[in-house]
Design a protein around this nucleic acid. Structure first.
Length: 422
RNA sequence: GGAGAGGUGCCGGAGCGGUUGAACGGGGCGGUCUCGAAAACCGUUGUUUCCUUUAGGAAACCCAGGGUUCGAAUCCCUGCCUCUCCGCCA
């Protein structure tokens, strides 16, 4: 959410950003509403000032047992007028709110303008594997090695779910632990183990609502949503708080299962692990000083990249163009890993700087020193990383001509030193 | 699920419907004292919005949202949350 004053003073810039993000939204009546709102507030504040003074006088008169009926009658009228104006303000503020809640964040100057064809490749890492045999895809490998069982999963829960078995389950667990340990011990994050359900307010705070309600699993009885990412609980930890600036930056990491209905996504990239309703992810969230957020974004990206480097999975990094950027993002790097059989890159991590867009929405502020005024923090998050697609890449890239899979070295200590899945 | 208690400022904790934005205590900040520190004493200590803008003035906020009233932290209703006891379950 942008600041009302900022919109008022940078109206053309905001319109430009809406266009560049590919949003269809007219904000032409904003300025009129904004002016009207301020005018009515001035009027009603004056009336309230009068009411406060006269009410005090009435109180004094009553104490002295004097008659105050004339004043009371007069104030009755004033109060009625105030009631009308207050409700006018409420209506206008609702209208304004409905507009600004739909205004996307302004892309950073370093973000390419245009649709996704303008995404800018930042780097390639690692050598794409070449096989002197016909490589199998992850579904085939998973089945033959008896480590991933999609058909049992669909018996239990329906399509779009996975069941890990034996070394498959161990491999999954190893990945999660490896990533958490890396972020905690080497990158300085604090581990959080959050609730996997979140209320409406939290979901709204991080922007999953109202736009994406259809994509969320909802427990109706309790009006709780299954979290689609640990970003929801992590970012909401400090909702409505004023933090001590000396304690920034704050780095949180968390493992969580992630639940997504993926409504309306049938037919596209749905095979196997490509798109599932429940997957595991280690998420990273940063709450930082505004002036540091772009440096922090580079570090966040590096933290996610290191996961892949240590697993020896080739990847590339893309700086998303304005039209491909998420609603709340000011800048975002996508990390895409190579799937050998699909012969394409799969998005596995998004590292975003939201600047103060999220913070404004959920009111995370800070004070630099004891007596300085409050400012909004900047927030960032990145996947570090999601395991489902990682599993595709590990199985497909590390397979041998014997149909076995070599366990990446860094995972072996989490798997009882098993080095090959056969 | 049943019964009860409660949600007040950075924290603890008061608050007959009428100078209560909020007593009192603690903490923080500034100062006096001191070679320095502690103690003591004095002062100060929230956020948001609107108007005018050297400087100010005004409004709103005591979990949230409604209501009663000339006037509400204080009364009424709804919701949310926390705590205690019982039951049930892991």
């Amino acid at each position: 959410m942008l600041d009302v004053r900022f919109i008022r003073e940078n109206f053309e810039l905001v319109k430009e950003a809406i266009k560049n993000k590919g949003e269809k939204l007219s904000i032409d009546n904003f300025l009129e509403l904004d002016t009207k709102r301020r005018k009515i507030i001035s009027e009603v504040d004056q009336l309230k000032h009068k009411r406060n003074q006269v009410s005090e006088k009435i109180g004094r008169l009553k104490k002295e047992n004097k008659n105050a009926q004339d004043l009371i009658n007069e104030m009755k009228k004033v109060s009625d007028r105030i009631k009308i104006l207050d409700s006018d303000i409420q209506n206008i503020e609702k209208e304004i709110y409905d507009i600004i809640i739909k205004i996307p964040n302004i892309p950073h100057p370093s973000v390419p303008v245009g649709d996704e064809s303008h995404n800018k490749l930042i780097k390639n890492w690692g050598e794409l594997p070449e096989f002197d045999f016909t490589p199998k895809d992850h579904l085939e490998l998973g089945k033959e090695l008896d480590i991933i069982d999609f058909s049992s999963a669909s018996k239990i829960a329906g399509g779009g779910f996975a069941l890990y078995k034996g070394l498959g389950a161990q491999l999954e667990r190893a990945l999660i632990n490896f990533m958490l340990d890396l972020h905690i011990n080497k990158h300085g994050y604090t581990e959080i183990f959050p609730p996997f359900l979140a209320n409406r307010e939290s979901m709204f705070g991080t922007g999953q609502l109202p736009k994406l309600e259809e994509d969320m699993y909802l427990c109706k009885e309790d009006d709780l949503f299954l979290i689609p990412t640990a970003e929801v609980p992590l970012t909401n930890i400090h909702r409505n708080e004023i933090l001590d600036g000396a304690k920034l930056p704050i780095y949180y990491t968390a493992y969580s299962a992630c639940f997504r209905r993926e409504a309306g996504s049938y037919g596209k990239d749905t095979r196997g692990f490509m798109r599932v309703h429940q997957f595991n992810k280690v998420e990273m969230v940063k709450i930082v000083l505004p002036e540091t957020s772009y440096d922090e974004l580079e570090k966040l990206l590096a933290d996610a990249e290191e996961v892949l480097q240590l697993l020896k999975i080739p990847y590339r990094v893309v700086n998303l163009a304005s039209g491909d950027l998420s609603f709340a993002g000011a800048k975002c790097y996508d990390i895409e890993i190579w799937a050998s059989v699909e012969k394409k890159f799969l998005e596995i991590s998004s590292c975003s700087n939201f600047e103060d867009f999220q913070a404004r929405r959920i009111e995370i502020k800070f004070r630099r020193t004891k007596n300085s005024k409050v400012e909004f923090v900047h927030t960032l998050n990145g996947s570090g990383v999601a395991t489902a697609r990682l599993m595709i890449s590990i199985l497909e890239n590390h397979q041998t001509d014997e149909g076995t899979v070599i366990v990446p070295e860094v995972l072996r200590k989490y798997m009882g030193e098993i080095n090959i899945i056969k």
